[in-house]
């Protein structure tokens, strides 16, 4: 049962990667629920287990809802988003998918790891590496993403111009 569930989730995550790397951002957005929260708290160098990603008002690299995700995508479509124009070459790798909580058949908590390679014209090549905590919900149309918390493993991160 969990294996089957994990395969289903992995499949939709792989689909996400192909959509993102193929510049199909609107199709990727369609995999999100209307109440999506897509966010990445900043990292801090503190003692072991002292970092608290849920600390009240902790800064976030981004903390988006459906509307602001739409803005980010619309911007990329203008042809003038110079940080991504000409577009970067991106390659998403998603692995270590683990179902954390499947107690409800409609909604699962899933952990995964990612590496995203990015190369831009003339600029250095970069990796974005980290983990994700997702909530996927089952709808008539299939699995949809309701929340994604992205934990970057960088201290000083690069200019984040890509979706994870």
């Amino acid at each position: 049962m969990t294996t089957d569930l994990r395969l289903q989730i992995e499949e939709v995550m792989i689909e996400e990667s192909w959509l993102l790397d193929g510049n199909r951002f609107e199709d990727w957005l369609a995999l999100m629920t209307d109440d999506i929260r897509y966010w990445a708290p900043v990292r801090e160098n503190l003692g072991r287990d002292e970092e608290d990603f849920h600390q009240l008002h902790l800064l976030t690299h981004f903390d988006e809802d459906r509307m602001t995700m739409g803005l980010r995508v619309a911007r990329l479509r203008t042809g003038f988003a110079h940080a991504e124009e000409p577009p970067s070459r991106r390659r998403h790798f998603v692995s270590n998918v683990k179902i954390l909580d499947a107690s409800s058949p409609e909604s699962v908590q899933v952990a995964s790891n990612f590496i995203v390679f990015r190369s831009r014209p003339g600029l250095e090549e970069h990796l974005f590496v980290g983990g994700r905590r997702d909530q996927w919900v089952h709808t008539e149309a299939g699995w949809r993403l309701r929340e994604r918390m992205i934990i970057f493993d960088h201290d000083v991160i690069e200019n984040i111009t890509v979706f994870i």
Binding site: F62, L71, A83, R120
Partner: peptide
């Protein structure tokens, strides 16, 4: 306020991304 800051002027800000490239 925290969310607007991340969206606009930050490591991922939709204004600030382009400044870095210039």
């Amino acid at each position: 306020t925290r969310k607007m800051l991340g969206l606009t002027f930050s490591s991922s800000g939709i204004y600030e991304q382009d400044d870095g490239v210039a």
